[in-house]
């Protein structure tokens, strides 16, 4: 639903009859995709929803559940884990905002200022996505080492008394948000770059010609015109960041008091074998994200832009 906002222009009226006439061909073309979605998205989703209502087998082993309609799975797990749910969205929101603030100038520089130098442009974009050549886990572990108590950053900050001697950088909300921001910057940068690269400079000249200062031109012309990139970039960052369980994990940049909804789902599925709770939390995560994204896309008015 949300993706429809930035995948293409709405069909113009004179195109529609032709499209309808060829609907037979369209169905055939859609078939593989539909089959794929049914098999790998719809089936697991239904199974997840069924699991989320299951009840433990009476006198059964740990991890044995039977089909039921136990609403309390939702209410109980929300009552227990609401701090983690809230934390997930707050962290994801801050990380998304930070990634946007870092990526927008970067994408603007590469996409607008570097125009006419395509070699340099491509080189810089390669550098932006270069982290993908190394595993996500390895990079996050590397940051754990860099930010660790005996790492040079922490020790030099302590040496100049910016940090108290007993403070840590890892295992704090800061390091978790830092990790989320760092890991999702390429996802923010790529869509921003692709819209800013197409930004018509002549419109900025027109803005300045019509008495708008560079800052007003940026607010009134550049930002609205790069809205598709901003929306897709923030969605591509916010959605996975809200469900992320690596950065907030105690093995990586987090601590017990920074765990997010992803960590809850992970431990319930894999450690506690409390499948219904894990499934319920997964459904909650998905529902909340759907609502947030729906409101966001509607409010940002990006359907009209494309």
């Amino acid at each position: 639903m949300a993706l429809a906002a930035f995948t293409g222009a709405p069909p113009t009226q004179d195109q529609e009859p032709a499209v309808r006439r060829k609907s037979g061909i369209a169905l055939v073309l859609l078939l593989p995709g539909v089959l794929y979605l049914v098999l790998f998205f719809l089936t697991p989703l239904i199974s997840l929803i069924i699991t989320s209502f299951q009840a433990p087998v009476v006198d059964g082993d740990i991890g044995q559940y039977q089909t039921a309609f136990q609403w309390s799975n939702y209410t109980d797990s929300l009552a227990e884990y609401w701090p983690q749910v809230l934390r997930s969205f707050v962290y994801a929101l801050i990380a998304t905002a930070a990634a946007l603030l870092i990526s927008y100038p970067l994408a603007y520089f590469i996409g607008v200022k570097m125009r006419g130098r395509p070699v340099l442009q491509n080189l810089l974009m390669t550098l932006v996505i270069a982290p993908f050549f190394i595993s996500f886990l390895l990079r996050t572990l590397a940051w754990k080492a860099i930010l660790s108590d005996d790492g040079w950053i922490a020790s030099s900050l302590k040496a100049v008394s910016i940090l108290p001697p007993d403070a840590h950088i890892t295992g704090t909300p800061f390091s978790v948000i830092f990790g989320l921001t760092y890991n999702f910057i390429p996802f923010m940068c790529l869509p921003l770059y692709s819209t800013l690269e197409r930004l018509d400079i002549r419109l900025l000249e027109a803005g300045q010609d019509l008495y708008a200062s560079p800052w007003t031109t940026f607010r009134k012309v550049t930002v609205p015109l790069s809205m598709p990139g901003i929306v897709s970039g923030t969605l591509l960052t916010f959605i996975p960041a809200a469900g992320d369980y690596i950065n907030a994990s105690q093995d990586f940049l987090g601590a017990a008091d920074t765990s997010m909804i992803g960590n809850v789902i992970e431990s319930n599925f894999l450690v506690l074998q409390n499948y219904p709770t894990a499934a319920a939390m997964s459904v909650v995560l998905m529902a909340v994200i759907l609502v947030i994204v729906g409101v966001y896309v509607r409010r940002s008015g990006t359907e009209e832009l494309l």
Binding site: D200, R202, L203, E205, A206, G207, Q208, D209, L210, Y211, A212, S213, P214, T217, V221, P224, L225, M227, L305
Partner: peptide, 20 residues
């Protein structure tokens, strides 16, 4: 002086109308 400070307006060859 900057373009936005000049008492001048331009009709651009490309029109440069704001599409949004």
């Amino acid at each position: 002086t900057k373009p936005f400070q000049r008492p001048v307006n331009t009709v651009f060859q490309s029109y440069a109308l704001f599409p949004h």
